[in-house]
Design a protein around this nucleic acid. Structure first.
Lengths: 237, 237
DNA sequence: TAGTGGTCTAGACCACAAT
DNA sequence: TTGTGGTCTAGACCACTAC
């Protein structure tokens, strides 16, 4: 957050989110912003391109940068957002139950995918998420012990991401995820309040650090009525 | 596609997709690429940043740009991809049935969201998608007639996107979409081969042109066993 | 014609990784 | 210390929009 262009990005995005800058209005031109922020045009353009990527503005050649209607986006699970961040936004009655926390030998496929040696171990974490007294999400995590030496139930009950990023100072770089709908397993029926629902939404995701090492595999299983995914996408180049 | 940085992006991404550049290997450094492509470093960096955004490479400070394992990404519905593009990739036995094509007065909420005047009309298109003889997707589209004056069943049976982009020369800029799971409606049961499935996956999406005008609303209803969504995401700034 | 965003350049300094 | 990517600059020319 030290760089100029990120500071400009943050300031303008805040103004858009707060309503200070109204949808359909135009931002000052790039030349004007150059004066306002006392910087070069390329630096302004870096900030504006970020805003465009994230759906805050649309740049139109010859006209300017239009502010987009951002409030419809509420609850973006797109991008990488942890459960704790989501629940804070929702301001809901939310609770996490740690069902299991253990050190195990990785399965053959895990060992291969995570490029582990024969002696490496992995953490297995199983957690249930409760909204308004109902168990609606089952999270199963596999983490490499190399990178995360110690793990306690307390950490898991709070936020794994927060611990990894703030305490261990590891930076999460990118993730791949896949969403499918399947029949519930015995484990799902046991640990979730399925209430007769005959399907669960499964989000499998691989999380990588900044240096491209895989460090976490997550399977997040949702009761279908409590699942929602919102996405903003720009057309391919 | 005239710009240097896009040409460089295309060349390198092609090399990665073809396997000419192997996963976990390093790209030439930015300075070397500057010589190879006879351009400035900022132009190289624009190309590399695109590759990074799209999940082809990971840039690591002090080391270089690592090629990522891209073949696991198969079938990215993320980003904006049309049904025709997907089916070509899948190389499947695929058929589109046009159930309905009509010009209608927009509903009140549509009129508001699309900023239409009282006399404007919208196209309503209902299509069923058949994979291997089974009707598994129901697509319901609303398009503003202002922008798309003529529409025929033939066009709808082929590809709306192709017609819009190639024939009408409109550029699709970005989209917002939402994914939820619900119970099937009467229409779903009628037009799809649900085979006892008690849920459908609903993808609602708004498509906007390059100048930020909303021109299409789509509701795509999938049989759950045939639904799959793959996403690549970078951590928020 | 004037103003907008899109591309490109040649140089500079910095933070970080490998040695 | 050398080489890497990350940021920033001041200037240039272009394509498009509005007038």
């Amino acid at each position: 957050m030290k760089s100029k262009y990120l500071a400009i990005y943050n300031e303008i995005s805040k103004q858009i989110k707060s309503g200070e800058l109204l949808p359909d209005s135009l931002l000052p031109s790039e030349n004007e912003l150059t004066d306002i922020y006392d910087t070069s045009r390329e630096t302004i353009r870096k900030a504006l391109n970020l805003l465009s990527q994230d759906g805050y503005i649309q740049k139109i050649r010859g006209k300017g940068s239009v502010v987009l209607n951002v409030n419809k986006f509420d609850f973006p699970v797109s991008g990488l957002v942890s459960f704790k961040e989501i629940s804070q936004k929702l301001d809901n009655q939310v609770r996490t139950i740690v069902n299991e926390l253990s050190l195990e030998k990785p399965s053959q496929s895990m060992k291969k995918q995570m490029q582990l040696s024969s002696t490496d171990l992995v953490w297995k974490v199983v957690r249930t998420r409760e909204f308004d007294g109902q168990k609606v999400i089952l999270d199963k995590d596999i983490l490499v012990q190399n990178l995360i030496p110690d793990l306690t139930k307390e950490i898991c009950a709070d936020s794994l991401y927060e611990y990894i990023e703030n305490k261990l100072n590891l930076t999460i770089g990118f993730s791949k995820k896949e969403i499918v709908v399947t029949e519930p397993t015995e484990e799902d029926r046991e640990l979730l309040d399925l209430e007769g629902f005959s399907n669960v939404v499964v989000i499998k995701s691989y999380a990588f650090l900044d240096d491209a090492t895989l460090f976490q595999f997550t399977e997040s299983r949702h009761r279908p009525d409590k699942f929602r995914f919102v996405d903003f996408a720009r057309r391919n180049h």
